[in-house]
Design a protein around this nucleic acid. Structure first.
Lengths: 183, 183
DNA sequence: GGTCGATGTTAACCATCATTAACATCCTCA
DNA sequence: TGAGGATGTTAATGATGGTTAACATCGACC
């Protein structure tokens, strides 16, 4: 029902991704949804609250799906499921991925901890799957490999224009899988 | 000889990387080098000029080294040289890599074009090497693969703490090479 | 020894911005 | 019909920030 809130969140994500949290004003966000700046205060308690809700929502979605998909017992299949879903999310929501990756520091303390916890937990789902797939790899190397893999997958906002969506998805999946299993 | 300029550029890179261009004030940068805000105007014409010079310098270094290393005739060797050098640069200068990747839009038009040209040219050096190594791969896929590879390599600022430098360099090299040659 | 350019400092200026206040509309529903 | 909540708008407020002005210091060099 809160269409307006969702609309504002989407516009804010776009602007925060393109210009950075401090580079986009509340007036810019309002204008992007056909409103004036102060109108946003009818829907959010402030600029920080917009960012906080945005990041909390993203990290919840990622984490929930991470838990769900890594439940698949066969680790190779689980990894492909994680890859497929994450890649689709990144290709469909480049702005969200960008903001999620860059703007955590601007979230007020209160919610920053929870977001960080969810982000870490999401990484751990991947680490768990990868450790089942490659038991020999030490844990810190595994975690570093997962982070690097995210770097690869999340690079999509900068280059997505070049290939059509399916080709891009396939390419990222192949590259990431190969990188992880060779690590 | 302009030690002060270099010092300011380094401090600014650190702050721009951590908080974003708009999130770090000229006063913050000054304070970081033991000066007051307005003192910076003795060394740069303004905040934008600091960023512009920083990005121009980085992209020139990347491009020059890209040209130099891709001259190696054997494409596998050339790729390893590019990987090794880029990884070392990213591990040694995480702030520079971050800013170079994120803040181009805040550079004034005049210098933005030149920087973008150098960035593109650097990518093309990689594309050229990769095409020699894997002639079958279509050009647009090759370019997309290179961009994704940069995403992997440049993820280092976020996770570098986990492993020691050499282990991290080795891991990134292995993963990137595998991703590129499987693409 | 005195001038001058380089390099800093503090105070003043002006724009932008987040936020709040005061005031309008309009829809719902008793 | 008319009271009230939801949702907007424009004006005011206060802070911050980039930039410039006016004023010191100091070292080099005639």
């Amino acid at each position: 029902m809160p269409t307006r809130r969702a609309e504002i969140l989407a516009a804010a994500a776009e602007l925060f991704a393109r210009r950075g949290y401090h580079g986009a004003s509340i007036g810019d966000v309002g204008r992007a949804v056909g409103l004036t700046g102060p109108a946003l205060y009818r829907h959010f308690t402030g600029k920080e609250a917009v960012l906080a809700e945005m990041l909390l929502d993203i990290s919840r979605r990622l984490h929930a799906e991470g838990v769900r998909l890594s439940a698949e017992p066969e680790p190779g299949r689980a990894l492909d499921a994680l890859l497929g879903w994450h890649i689709a999310f990144a290709l469909d929501n480049p702005a969200l991925i960008t903001v999620h990756e860059r703007e955590l520091d601007n979230v007020p303390e209160a919610q920053r901890h929870e977001i960080r916890r969810l982000q870490r937990a999401y990484v751990e789902e991947w680490v768990g799957v990868l450790r089942r797939l490659r038991p020999g790899l030490p844990e810190d190397r595994t975690r570093a490999a997962v982070h690097a893999c995210f770097g690869l997958l999340n690079s999509t906002p900068y280059s997505a224009a070049a290939l059509d969506r399916d080709a891009m998805a396939g390419l990222l999946h192949t590259m990431a899988r190969s990188a992880l299993t060779t690590a």
